[in-house]
Amino acid sequence: MSTSVIRIAAALLIGPDGRTLLVRKRGTRAFMQPGGKIEAHEQPVQALTRELDEELGLAIDPTQARYLGAFSAPAANEPGFVVEAQVFLLSIDAPVSPAAEIEEVRWIDPAGDGGLLLAPLTGEAILPFYRTTCLATC
Results as ranks from 00 to 15, higher is better:
residue 49 T to S: 02
residue 16 P to D: 12
residue 47 A to V: 11
residue 48 L to K: 07
residue 10 A to S: 15
residue 78 E to T: 15
residue 59 A to Y: 10
residue 110 P to V: 04
residue 126 I to R: 05
residue 125 A to M: 14
residue 70 A to P: 02
residue 91 S to T: 14
residue 65 A to M: 08
residue 55 E to Y: 01
residue 65 A to I: 09
residue 73 A to I: 11
residue 128 P to H: 03
residue 56 L to G: 01
residue 76 A to F: 07
residue 123 G to L: 07
residue 67 Y to R: 13
residue 25 K to A: 06
residue 10 A to T: 15
residue 105 V to M: 01
residue 17 D to L: 11
residue 22 L to K: 07
residue 67 Y to F: 12
residue 121 L to K: 07
residue 136 A to T: 07
residue 86 Q to A: 14
residue 125 A to R: 15
residue 4 S to M: 15
residue 88 F to E: 08
residue 29 R to V: 14
residue 111 A to M: 13
residue 44 P to M: 04
residue 36 G to I: 11
residue 8 I to K: 07
residue 39 E to P: 11
residue 54 E to H: 03
residue 113 D to R: 14
residue 116 L to T: 08
residue 57 G to H: 05
residue 21 L to M: 05
residue 49 T to Q: 10
residue 103 E to S: 12
residue 106 R to E: 10
residue 7 R to M: 06
residue 26 R to V: 14
residue 51 E to Y: 03
residue 136 A to Y: 07
residue 22 L to W: 09
residue 9 A to P: 06
residue 109 D to E: 12
residue 54 E to G: 02
residue 93 D to G: 07
residue 24 R to N: 05
residue 69 G to P: 08
residue 119 A to N: 01
residue 4 S to L: 15
residue 86 Q to V: 09
residue 58 L to R: 02
residue 16 P to G: 14
residue 78 E to D: 08
residue 80 G to W: 10
residue 42 E to A: 10
residue 15 G to Q: 14
residue 124 E to D: 11
residue 36 G to E: 05
residue 90 L to M: 11
residue 91 S to P: 09
residue 39 E to R: 15
residue 108 I to M: 03
residue 23 V to G: 01
residue 78 E to K: 13
residue 6 I to H: 05
residue 87 V to M: 05
residue 30 A to F: 03
residue 16 P to I: 15
residue 104 E to F: 07
residue 112 G to M: 04
residue 101 E to N: 13
residue 62 P to N: 04
residue 97 S to P: 04
residue 114 G to E: 09
residue 83 V to Y: 00
residue 34 P to C: 05
residue 128 P to A: 02
residue 8 I to W: 00
residue 83 V to F: 01
residue 51 E to P: 07
residue 18 G to S: 05
residue 46 Q to Y: 10
residue 36 G to C: 11
residue 74 P to M: 05
residue 24 R to L: 04
residue 22 L to A: 08
residue 81 F to Y: 13
residue 137 T to D: 04
residue 105 V to W: 04
residue 131 R to A: 02
residue 76 A to V: 13
residue 33 Q to L: 15
residue 103 E to K: 12
residue 99 A to L: 11
residue 113 D to A: 12
residue 62 P to S: 03
residue 117 L to G: 04
residue 18 G to P: 10
residue 29 R to L: 12
residue 42 E to Y: 11
residue 79 P to D: 02
residue 127 L to R: 02
residue 27 G to I: 15
residue 74 P to F: 08
residue 90 L to I: 14
residue 74 P to I: 05
residue 5 V to N: 00
residue 28 T to D: 01
residue 67 Y to W: 12
residue 86 Q to P: 05
residue 100 A to T: 08
residue 105 V to E: 00
residue 4 S to V: 14
residue 127 L to P: 00
residue 115 G to K: 09
residue 88 F to N: 01
residue 59 A to K: 15
residue 3 T to G: 09
residue 71 F to V: 09
residue 129 F to L: 04
residue 87 V to I: 11
